[in-house]
């Protein structure tokens, strides 16, 4: 039985254009201005990132709520060798960040230089990009808030 032919590369590529709806549209609009907004659920929880619905019940959420660009790391994982698609090219941490004023945590990255600086419960501050377009990557990363 002859063997299989040589392998070939297959690239699946498309620049998806996503309509985001009113709630995320406002969140992304605020990010473009360098601010972070969540949304309040009917039970009073503040979701960041905001959603059109309460993740626990499916009920529609209410009014937007401004939250701080500082918060607490509730979980983190250290990446020594970033992948090409990762937001940072230098070693960094993935983190769940609960912003001050929010009841849920946002997944993003922390630029802490080295793993030894990472700790659950540490305070971080968002670093915004200079050129913002209204998307999640307008937050370049979070960084340790060491001044406090």
């Amino acid at each position: 039985m002859s063997r299989s032919l040589q392998e070939a590369k297959h690239v699946l590529e498309y620049p998806y254009r996503r309509s985001v709806g009113p709630v995320l549209g406002r969140f992304f609009g605020a990010l473009a201005e360098g601010r972070i907004e969540g949304v309040r659920t009917q039970t009073g929880h503040v979701l960041v990132p905001p959603q059109e619905y309460d993740p626990q019940t499916g009920e529609a959420t209410g009014e937007p709520v401004a939250v701080a660009s500082t918060g607490v790391v509730t979980a983190w994982a250290w990446v020594d060798r970033p992948r090409p698609k990762h937001p940072l090219a230098n070693p960094f941490a993935w983190a769940l960040v609960q912003l001050d004023g929010a009841d849920t945590a946002l997944l993003h990255v922390v630029d802490a230089g080295e793993m030894a600086r990472m700790k659950t419960g540490m305070r971080v501050r968002a670093r915004f990009r200079d050129e913002r377009v209204g998307e999640i990557r307008d937050i370049a990363c979070f960084e340790p808030e060491e001044a406090r």
């Binding site: 979980a75 250290w78 997944l107």
Partner: peptide, 25 residues
């Protein structure tokens, strides 16, 4: 989530690592 999470390209190992951290903590 294709709006606020996938655009950052967290890979499956990284997410599992976050979960492991929570479990360890």
């Amino acid at each position: 989530d294709p709006y606020t999470v996938a655009p950052l390209w967290p890979d499956a190992v990284s997410l599992a690592a976050l979960q492991a951290r929570v479990a360890l903590d």
